[in-house]
Amino acid sequence: MSDRWRRRTCCRRADGKRFSSTFSLGVRGAACGALEGRCEVRGVRIGILAVQGDFEAHAAMLARLGAETVEVRTPAQLQGCDGLILPGGESTTQLQFLQEEGLADAIGKFAKQGGAIFGTCAGAILLAAEVRNPRQDSLKLLDMTVLRNAYGRQIASDVVNGPTKLKKQPLEMVFIRGPIIERAGPDLKVLAEYAGKPALVQRDNIMAATFHPELTDDTTVHEHFLRLVAVGTNHAAGSAIS
């Protein structure tokens, strides 16, 4: 397969109007900085882990971008999803559901099969290879070490700005009892930072944010995730044809 490929797709903008655009994407989710406008690929289905947390905020954000979403509470509900969002919430609560109801295995399998995954806050903690403060088990899908509640208690929660590779302007970041990515492995791309620490990272089509883009009006991060989903969907379609 060539390094770059082109695809024509139908997009729906935030204002609800549909438009067509042709754009190119690098393989393996390379940064799509050349892309403009609000693009969403029609026909992709995004699962949102809904055992506990701010899954509705993610659903509202994806609805604005025109993506189809489905709440995932059981392994069976993950079937047919092209992407999966692990929302914010309490990672201890979420982890319990993942481990006791077979969701952890299902998500591991989903990632292996090339499904795109995006975790925010607690979701980022679940994706990390190593969790500290205190130590806890995780899905280990991204090579990074995450410290839980690293800024302190709720009183330290805040809205800040940080530099990002996804757009020229700084990204608005809502931190709520947020974690810190203390160490990001060499295969992780850092897409945004806050106070010198990675705040948004990506490896292939798996992404993690220590903040909550779903609690802002800015669709940049979710649009980027939808592009990663589109890349994965196309790889799957491409390999089926060849």
């Binding site: 809904a50 947390g53 914010g88 709720q154 929660s157 809502v174 709520i176 009892r177």
Partner: peptide, 22 residues
């Protein structure tokens, strides 16, 4: 400013959002 209210208000309601489903 902004459609989502003050930043302080946003992080307050934000924590409540995080507790949903629990």
């Amino acid at each position: 400013a902004g459609s989502k209210g003050s930043n302080e208000w946003r992080v307050k309601v934000g924590l409540a959002e995080m507790l949903k489903g629990g």
